[in-house]
Every structure is written in C-alpha cells, then in structure tokens.
Design a protein around this nucleic acid. Structure first.
Lengths: 335, 335
DNA sequence: CTGAAAGCGCTTACAG
DNA sequence: CTGAAAGCGCTTACAG
C-alpha cells in the first residue's frame, strides 16, 4: 500500500489516523489508492503498539437465556457506538470455564470485561482480576465484592413490589418459587418479598420452595405446590422462565390463572407479554444495564486504575398484566 | 518473563508452545516462573506473526431473537472447542452495518466469518467477500449465492410437512401468515406448503398474508385473518414468534386453539414448548447449524482458498404438540 | 510536511 | 538444546 503510493508507511499511518501533518495533495493520493486497493489496515499490529484492542469481552452463563440476550444486545450496541467489538463467552456458570475465558481475553489485550460472575467472589479472585490491570465490571453483586465496579438491580425492592401487589389483591396464602439459597440475588428477592408481608401487618404467610432456576424447575415446583400446599392462591417466582413452568403445571392441574391462582414473575423478558395469560412481572431494565456496564468500563479505562469502584443499582417496577388478579373468595380452594 | 528466568524469549516461546527442543530442566524452570508471575502471553503479538487471531466473527440480525440465540450458542460452543473466541455482531439486517462489521473483522485478521446475510447477494458482493481471503460461511442461502459456502435448512420440506399435517387433520381452508416475499426463505416455506395442497388432490385452498416477521406482525395478521377470512381453520406461520402473535390475536378474538383453529409454526424455539397450548411447529436444528457452520469454516481454513463451495442443507421435522388438532366439523365457523 | 528508526511482544528458521 | 537475528504491520517521537 505504501510503496504502491510512493510514500512511507508512517505517512500513510498519519494520514489514515488523522494525526500529524500530511499535505492535502499526499492525503488525496493516499486516500485514493487506499480505496482502489480496498486497503484494510491490520488492526492487530496497531493494537500491539497502542496496547488497546478495541474489543470488549462479555461473560455470561448462557445467551439462550432471553434475559442475557436482551442485556447482551445493550452491551453490543453501546460497544459498537464506542467503536469496540464484543467477544461473547458462555460459561454455564462453571468457574473453570470462566477462568479460561478471562485468561484468553486478557491475552488478547482486551479493553475491558463485563462479567456475570459465576460463583461467590472471594478477595483472592478480586485481587487476581485487578492484577490484570484491565477494566472489569460485574453484572451482578455477588456477596463479597469490595474492589470491583458493579451494575445491578434492586432485587429487594423487586421482591417487595411483588409481595405488596399480591397482598393488595387480597391474597394471604402466598408462595415463593425460587432458586438455590446461596445466590445473593435469590436471597435478596426472597427477603424483599417477605418484608412486604411483615410490613403489611396482616397475618399473611408464605411457603418457600427452592429448585432449579429454569422452566423445568418452575414446572416441578408448581406441581409440588399444588399437591403440598393447595391453599396457596398467589405465587412469586424468582424469574419469568420459572413462572412459565409454574403456569404450565397449574394449567395441567386444572388450576385456572389468574382466577384460581395468581402468578408474578421477575425480569419482564419479551416473551412474558406474548404468552396467555400475559405475565405480570417485575421489570428489570436489561438493555440499559448492558449499556451502563459499557459506560462504566469506558470510564474505568480513562481513569488511573486504582480508583474507587462504582456501584450502579437500577430500580425495578411492576408490570401489571393478566396473570395476577384480585382474590375471589368463592374460588379459594380449601384443603 | 524471559529475563526473570534467565533464558531467551525464543526459548520461552518454544517451551510454552511445545514446539522445538527444550531441555526438561529449563522447561520446568520456565513453567514454574510463568506460573509464579501469572504470566499471560500476548496473543496479539503472536497473531501478528502467525497471521491468525484465533477469533471468529458471527454476524446476525439480532441476538434477542431466540432463533439466533440458540444458533449462536452452537457456534460459540464449537468455536470454544476449537480454541477460538467469538465476536458477536448484530446488524438488524442493515447492509451498511453489516459492511462495517465485516471490515472491522477483516482488519482484526479474523479466522473466519459466519453471517446470516442481510439482503440479496449479488456477484459483486461475493467477489468482495472472497477478496478478503478469509473463510466465510453463510447461515442462509440468499438467492444468487454461487461461490460461498452455506449452511441452511430445507425450507420447502418444512412448508410441505406443515401443509401435509394440517391436511391430514382434515383441514381444507388454510392460511399462511408470512414475511416479505423477496426473502428466499419466506418464498421457499410458502412454496413447500402450497405444493402439499396441490399434491393432495383435495380441493383445499390457502389464504396468504404477508407482514412483519415478528410477534406484532403475527398478531396483526391473526386479527386480519379472523375478520377477512373467518372460514379458515388452520394456520401456518413463517416462524414461531409470529405464531405466538397469531395465538394472542385468536385468544383475544375468542377463537379457541386448537378446537376452533389450528396453528403450526416454524423454528421450534425453546419457548414454543413453554406456552399454552404448546406450539406444534417445524423443528430446525438451530444449535447443530451453528456447530456445522464452524466446522465448514475450519475446513475452509485448511484447504487452499479457491475451493468449490460446500452447501450443507439440514432436514427439518414436525414436532406435534397441542396447537393443532383434527378438524371438528361442528366447530367450523361458516361465514 | 515527510522519511528513517526504534519498538510493540511474539514466532520462526538458523547458527552454534 | 539454546540464543541471536529477522520480521509480522503498524505507531510514534525525532530528524531533516
């Protein structure tokens, strides 16, 4: 490209990057030949010199989870706007897979990593991550985060909103279908829900079932609930997909939603408005979370490294649809 | 790292890459210091020399579409197994955005690109793509592909299966809710469906509605169908999400599925089994398509470039669930 | 305003 | 078996 044009590579470099002086005539000539040759500069070589690869890494459990797909789209759009590419990594929450990915990203001089951390985060993990010297933002707040920045959602508030809403509809026999207790998210949503019961002063009670955080888990717990606790009239699930599972179980068992049993989910994934009845659920700003994570990353890249971590917490809100309704006493099944 | 250990960088390189001779003693020493220093080799520098970046590009319209999410997961898993990272690009089917992404990937010396091509593919496009000298695999077969390899699905067969199935259930007044006619996929599925009607010999007829290929499009066409063609008892949609939209419209209109109207979708995305009634649909091996695309890419990377393109076409199959049923004459609404 | 030189951190023949 | 040398394709001060 340079010899084709009769100038030095350094001149081409200055020209195409718009830095340093280049005479108008040479500029025109260079741009013209670049176009003619369909010249694509080698970004790798540039990265090796400048030390930044214009690439971001996103580490999540599984892109097939619509929650992550929506968030990933926010990340990708924000990255793209900033001129960065996005490397996608699915860990299935395996810490070893996560560690492998991080190492691979670091070796590619990645500009930053956004990660939905797989397990508990102990101080040693944090120090290791920090030692790589690249910006890192967590998409959740695993217990124990002290030095890394995070973007998350007010899970307690979400649980509280769901509980308050069901109480307001007149329900007193409630249930929570949720995931493994050791996850901070799970614990927080449950806590918020239970706090709404306490605050109400009514003698409302809640059955708590733990299971897998997916469709099948929701389905199984749905059946278990019906057989073990037929008195329950309202259910809060840890996420939307579990709500879909519960809905299926209730339908198979002949329990009509929302007439006989109300269901409130969490996430507000796109499908929740497509199903019948449309799901009442706690909305998380998934796309915005993705965008915010990129923003934090870019800010970390500017500042000197050992800066105080930022924690951005988004509010959630309840989206009323058709899966929850006022308790009709006549429909109330008594054991 | 090299001086820390008292050996030359070239020795470190040979050792860590397991190529060339390294004495057992030095090997041990090198591995030990590498571990102690938590040394991560700079992959960028290596790529600059070897000319391959161990990264793949995946270009699709939108990762939030569950069809692509499932395919993307297949791509990512296969890439990961081969030691490659995956760059994700969402184009929203904008050709300019697509072109920008491709250029960016090429400049990063990407090992290959998998792309769900956005528009028609004319010979000039193909030549441009080929000129980059990197492996490229298309995830669809836009009309006009001659020199690029593709992985796709037998869309005609899918349409045919759906049509035959509905005919077998006794339906004679049918409808197709589909997307814009200029897309080859759309045309093929429609063709296959219509061929099943012709072959049957029955005097069956099909209403054809065109609209947006998403939930809203399916919803709108669902309503339109009910008001303009109330005699129709069975519907085939271009994809599952459109089926969800139609289902919602039918439900709102008080038309019971499958008793009064049957619905068959296309794709078999995970949610199709979660909804009520579970969707009968034509299954595409989405994950396998993603894996196959990576395989083709790797094969292209081995062979000398101007090799004959490969076209892998997957079979589809009908998944019977609850949204389609035998026509019950008494339920048949006559205009 | 432009070219020559050094260097980014590796790999790869090639001497020794 | 190991080191010295050249080079991957750029960028970045620095002369001229």
């Amino acid at each position: 490209m340079a010899r084709e044009c009769g100038v030095d590579v350094s001149t081409v470099s200055r020209c195409l990057n718009n830095k340093g002086y280049v005479s108008p005539e040479t500029r025109i000539r260079i741009v013209a030949t670049a176009e003619r040759l369909n010249y694509v500069p080698n970004h790798l070589a540039r990265s090796l010199v400048t030390g930044n690869s214009h690439t971001l890494g996103l580490i999540i459990s599984d892109i097939r989870n619509p929650f992550f797909a929506e968030m990933a789209r926010g990340v990708e759009d924000a990255a793209n706007t900033a001129g960065l590419d996005l490397i996608l990594c699915n860990t299935d929450l395996h810490p070893e897979k996560q560690a492998r990915y991080i190492k691979s990203l670091v070796s590619k001089a990645i500009d930053g990593i956004i990660v939905n951390w797989a397990a508990r985060l102990d101080p040693a993990d944090e120090d290791l991550l920090l030692s790589y010297g690249i910006p890192i933002v967590l998409l959740n707040s695993p217990t124990g985060v002290r030095k890394l920045s995070t973007v998350s959602v007010d899970n307690r508030q979400g649980g509280f909103l769901a509980g308050s809403y069901l109480l307001k509809l007149g329900h007193r026999r409630l249930a929570i279908l949720t995931g493994p207790e050791n996850q901070s998210r799970v614990a927080e949503r449950e806590e918020g829900f239970l706090r709404s019961l306490e605050k109400s002063g009514d003698k409302a009670s809640a059955v708590i079932l733990h299971g897998d955080q997916n469709f099948l888990g929701g389905y199984q717990m749905g059946w278990k609930l019906i057989s073990d606790h037929p008195e329950v009239t309202a259910v809060f699930t840890h996420n939307d997909v579990m709500a879909f599972g519960a809905l299926k179980a209730f339908s198979e068992a002949g329990r009509r939603v929302p007439d006989e049993i109300s269901v409130v989910g969490f996430d507000n994934v796109q499908i929740s408005q497509m199903i019948q009845p449309a799901l009442t659920t706690v909305n998380q700003p998934k796309y915005e979370i993705g965008v915010a994570a990129v923003e934090l990353l870019l800010r970390l890249r500017e500042k000197p490294q050992p800066t105080a971590p930022t924690h951005r917490v988004y509010d959630v809100n309840l989206v009323e649809r058709q899966s929850a309704a006022r308790l009709i006493p006549s429909f109330h099944v008594v054991k």
